[in-house]
């Protein structure tokens, strides 16, 4: 648990802001959900979002503490403040969900995503793709005479920007992991 650096006191009971300021503005929030790593737990979380009509912009999940049987699900979602509060409360109701953190409101956090881009082309376009990749600190992880596979890590908007640049240069395939996020500091 201590290795996870999750702030105490923001568990399913007290993390909820029960006096929220409701507005109609759609906000984007990154939620970190700590769950018991048991069969079906991901289905419960996803089923909650589909069953109640919430959005999932991105979702990542992996076991983070083998001995404690804990997995961490990072969900990027969007909705009005009331919907966001409801999502957190509904997540907190799921029996194997231990903690729900709204990284967007609980203080500064870092978000990273890994993506791979396959760019197909020859001549100037190929050279330009390689040059831009260098600027974005993307690595070439596979190459043929006509293709590159770039690996890039960063915040989602950086990856979006890189994708926009690669598109006219022959972008053929994209694989993105979705966002992983942690709060900064202690």
């Amino acid at each position: 648990m201590s290795a996870l650096k999750i702030k105490k006191g923001s568990t399913s009971h007290s993390a909820y802001n029960l006096r929220p300021n409701f507005s109609d503005v759609i906000e984007r929030h990154t939620l970190a959900v700590l769950v018991e790593n048991e069969p079906g737990v991901l289905a419960r979380v996803i089923g909650l979002f589909s069953g109640r009509g919430y959005n999932i912009d991105s979702l990542t999940v992996a076991e983070v503490d083998h001995t404690g049987h804990l997995s961490r699900i990072t969900i990027v979602t969007s909705g009005t403040p009331q919907v966001i509060e409801q999502i957190k409360a509904q997540l907190g109701r799921i029996v194997p969900v231990y903690e729900v953190h709204d990284l967007t409101v609980e203080g500064p956090s870092v978000e990273r995503e890994l993506a791979m881009f396959k760019v197909t082309g020859t001549g100037d376009k190929r050279v330009e793709a390689l040059r831009l990749a260098d600027i974005f600190r993307a690595n070439v992880v596979d190459s043929t005479l006509e293709t590159f596979v770039f690996e890039i890590t960063g915040a989602p908007d950086k990856i979006d920007a890189f994708a926009d640049l690669m598109r006219p240069l022959g972008l053929t395939d994209v694989a993105r992991t979705g966002v992983a996020a942690l709060p900064r500091g202690n």
């Binding site: 399913s12 009971h13 909820y16 029960l18 006096r19 929220p20 409701f22 009331q82 509060e85 409801q86 409360a89 509904q90 907190g92 109701r93």
Partner: peptide, 17 residues
Amino acid sequence: IDPSSINKIIRIDIPIV
């Protein structure tokens, strides 16, 4: 007893879980 009931439909001024 269920925090998700609070503010789900109607905005609450004094919430008690």
